[in-house]
């Protein structure tokens, strides 16, 4: 399946500005199905990892209080054109998604 992670990395000198958007329902586990009143089980990303040339630059641990389709931005230094930037996440059901891009 194609990755549903959208990520943009803008290089400004050796600073990389990362903006990323995941597609995920981020169910809290306290919401009820409006049709039958059944509780919708929690389903949320637990951990996101961002690496640049296999070196971790950011790890984000999420609770259910992160909004649906999570957005994260941050900056890191030491990046250059040609570096391989990878974003991946795992959720509480063990599902994963991963995307990779070459910085330019």
């Amino acid at each position: 399946m194609a990755s549903k992670i959208k990520v943009k990395v803008k290089l400004k000198g050796d600073v990389a500005e990362v903006k990323s958007l995941m597609m995920h329902p981020m169910e809290t586990g306290s919401r009820k199905d409006p049709d039958n009143g059944a509780t919708i089980p929690a389903h949320h990303i637990t951990q996101l990892t961002f690496t640049n040339n296999d070196k971790p630059v950011m790890v984000i641990d999420c609770s259910t209080a992160v909004s649906r389709d999570p957005f994260f931005s941050f900056n890191f230094t030491g990046a250059k054109a040609g570096d391989t930037f990878v974003v991946d996440w795992v959720d509480n059901k063990g599902e994963t998604d991963r995307t990779e891009l070459v910085l330019e």
Binding site: V57, V59, F74
Partner: peptide, 22 residues
């Protein structure tokens, strides 16, 4: 559940982050 999100910052990563929470 009060803890919403936790960023692990690595050397070289700048301490400015943004996200959206509930």
């Amino acid at each position: 559940r009060p803890l919403a999100v936790f960023f692990e910052i690595f050397p070289g990563t700048q301490a400015n982050v943004a996200c959206r929470i509930k």
